[in-house]
Nucleic acid binder design. Structure first.
Lengths: 221, 221
DNA sequence: CGGAACAACTTACTCAGAGTAAGTATTACC
DNA sequence: GGTAATACTTACTCTGAGTAAGTTGTTCCG
């Protein structure tokens, strides 16, 4: 389909000089006046997000470039190839999750209620960034598993630190912190994937179920 | 008949590889005698696994076909495109994991020791199928997240059934079985990914750490 | 026994998208 | 005003997925 290539261009820089068409027409070559980039890394990534939300996880870099109002080499200059775009967006999503999480549990002591807040915040951010989540966890790149790890690390390491401190202050072995953190993030990862695709359980209820597993464990007595 | 000279060329002697001269001679066209396929679905998938182990998760379908001693359209006829190859291999890996798991916990009652056996079996199969694991969890296809779900489902649903029965027999709510199953599988998924890439903790020790989380939960007292 | 029909392939293509080399317009500097 | 630097675009190459058309041997029927 070539339609996607020409989709986002509103006007093809019409030669009629009817007026100052300030639309997101593609920049002309040449060094700009301000000495600054017109479309910086931030804006490219914003455009990438928009394109992903619109076209799903299979958007091409070309489409992202068009959405940003530039051409492919500019995307390469600002952020890099497909893998690096995905990595950058991974970090964005991880940061977004971490902000929501810390906002949700700020000041609270570690306990079951805090755990539920943590889980709900996670689920809600994923739900609000569905296409982005699918993009960074799948996409079309070669290194997906490594990027999954990359994304996970951004969530897991802060969590591991919290866990390690907490365990230490309770006089318990802190060596479990890292595997536990990856475990919890992995749990959230797959449950989120299942949830946004095949379940309509409300987030708080799902969080309660997960909290029951994580807080009390499987043991019945 | 114009090209009697090129008839005898066994293969194109792949220019890039200097590997094993195993190169199975490609079949000539024509209906075979037995009326059966010479290279069936099973053999194609075997070849795919071999190619993945040799070339890593980025093998092309072409390379898989060559490894199988056939050409691309045969691969398409037997198993399908890249996504379907990956799905089929996902099921293979999931079955392999499930066999190991059931062999490990057969007959044992559900308890902490059984949980550890379950986890160790999982980790060991993943470690023994490292490249395959990376292929099915990453690969290069469009639908990776959905295939991840596909792979996970093959492990999660049997587990969910076990959990549901166990919860019911203990007079506890069985509705948590499905989210818990996805949670446990997701935990194993990401921990495995982290483990085979960045950790050298022995499998039994890692399994113990995870078991501590899953069995007793985070609660300290 | 001699075709027509068919089955199982291979060859050779199309198509899309990632990544890059070369060209062009604009500004800055001396 | 001319030269260098800069910020782009155009236009390419290259790889790999997926497919259409051709080729060779087998079977079935008269």
């Amino acid at each position: 389909m070539n339609a996607s290539a020409m989709k986002a261009s509103p006007t093809k820089a019409s030669p009629t000089k009817a007026g100052p068409v300030k639309v997101t027409t593609r920049r002309r070559p040449g060094r700009p006046a301000g000495g600054q980039h017109v479309v910086n890394r931030q804006l490219v990534l914003d455009a990438a997000e928009r394109a992903i939300r619109r076209d799903g996880p299979t958007v091409s870099l070309e489409a992202i470039a068009v959405e940003a109002g530039v051409t492919k080499p500019v995307v390469y200059a600002r952020v890099g190839g497909r893998a690096e775009v995905a990595n950058a967006l991974s970090e964005r999503l991880a940061d977004r999750i971490m902000s929501a999480v810390f906002a949700a549990i700020q000041g609270k002591p570690i306990g079951r209620a805090t755990l539920v807040s943590f889980l709900v915040a996670n689920l809600e951010v994923v739900a609000a960034n569905r296409e982005l989540f699918l993009y960074v966890t799948g996409g079309t790149s070669d290194d997906t598993p490594l990027r999954t790890l990359h994304l996970a690390r951004h969530s897991a390491l802060p969590l591991a630190e919290v866990l390690a401190n907490w365990r230490s202050s309770n006089a318990r072995d802190a060596a479990v912190a890292i595997p536990w953190a990856y475990g919890v993030i992995g749990m959230l990862h797959l449950v989120s994937l299942w949830w946004i695709n095949e379940s309509d359980t409300p987030a708080p209820q799902l969080a309660e179920q997960l909290a029951e597993l994580l807080w009390s464990g499987l043991a019945t007595e």
